[in-house]
């Protein structure tokens, strides 16, 4: 009976570990390959160690085997997280068919801190002000115009802190910077004025823009 259970566990473990090898070879980018090495291989090795615990059936061996399972389950995600984080900073490219990169533009590349953490602090120090991020839509009226033409400060009394384009961050952009669809703008101003800006960005190019 014990032999049968451990044989089944060994087969499960071997199949999963073999799949992890297939995954690391065939997956399209580092981040998806990582899921093969961490999740699948951890499951496989855990299953094999469980088989060891069942097969020998001694308290000492089973304790060591289960402690190893616990250790692997704890360390594999930590190691994967550190490698994933480091590779994102190094600039390892994502698969070209990746739909969303939620970290894009949020990381401060100098301090390695998430930028969104800083916003609430900034808002706390400037009562009545809010920091907002806006993406320029495809058909937007402001797409293709320079910042000087849009007159954000004069028309809406908001201040532009930075423009995120791809993985670049243009901080303190001057009037000659031209906006393109997909750019992300980080603005600071009163909440109701930010609303107006977001509406103005969404308006398509055919409609009339309100004159200041």
């Amino acid at each position: 009976m014990r032999e049968l259970v451990s044989a089944i566990l060994i087969l499960i473990g071997t199949v999963f570990m073999s799949l992890s090898g297939l995954g690391i070879l065939r997956m399209p980018d580092l981040y998806t390959r990582m899921s093969a090495t961490t999740k699948v291989a951890t499951l496989g090795v855990g299953s094999v160690l469980l088989a060891v615990a069942v097969y020998f059936g001694e308290l000492g061996v089973a304790t060591r085997a289960l402690a190893t399972v616990a250790f692997v389950l704890l360390t594999a995600p930590v190691a994967a997280h550190m490698i994933g984080r480091a590779s994102y900073f190094v600039g390892v490219p994502l698969w070209e068919q990746t739909a969303i990169d939620e970290l894009r533009g949020h990381y401060d590349l100098r301090t390695h801190e998430l930028e969104s953490v800083c916003f609430p602090e900034l808002e706390l120090r400037l009562p009545g002000m809010q920091v907002g991020r806006f993406r320029i839509p495809e058909q937007s009226a402001v797409a293709g115009k320079t910042l000087a033409e849009i007159e954000l400060r004069q028309r809406y009394s908001v201040t532009l802190l930075a423009v995120c384009r791809g993985s670049h961050l243009l901080s303190n952009p001057d009037g000659d910077v031209r906006l393109f669809p997909g750019d992300e703008l980080i603005l600071i101003g009163p909440p109701e004025r930010l609303e107006e800006v977001s509406e103005a960005f969404r308006r398509s190019g055919d409609e009339q823009t309100p004159a200041g």
């Binding site: 451990s6 060994i10 473990g13 071997t14 570990m17 992890s20 090898g21 690391i24 580092l30 390959r33 990582m34 093969a36 090495t37 291989a41 951890t42 496989g44 090795v45 094999v48 160690l49 088989a51 060891v52 097969y55 020998f56 085997a65 190893t68 692997v72 594999a76 190691a79 994967a80 490698i83 480091a86 590779s87 190094v90 390892v92």
Partner: peptide
């Protein structure tokens, strides 16, 4: 990083192989 995770996987596979050999 690709090479690092490959090494990590080789380590994990080695663990599994040693455990199997123990049985």
């Amino acid at each position: 990083p690709d090479r690092v995770i490959a090494l990590d996987l080789i380590g994990t596979l080695g663990m599994g192989m040693i455990a199997l050999y123990a049985i």
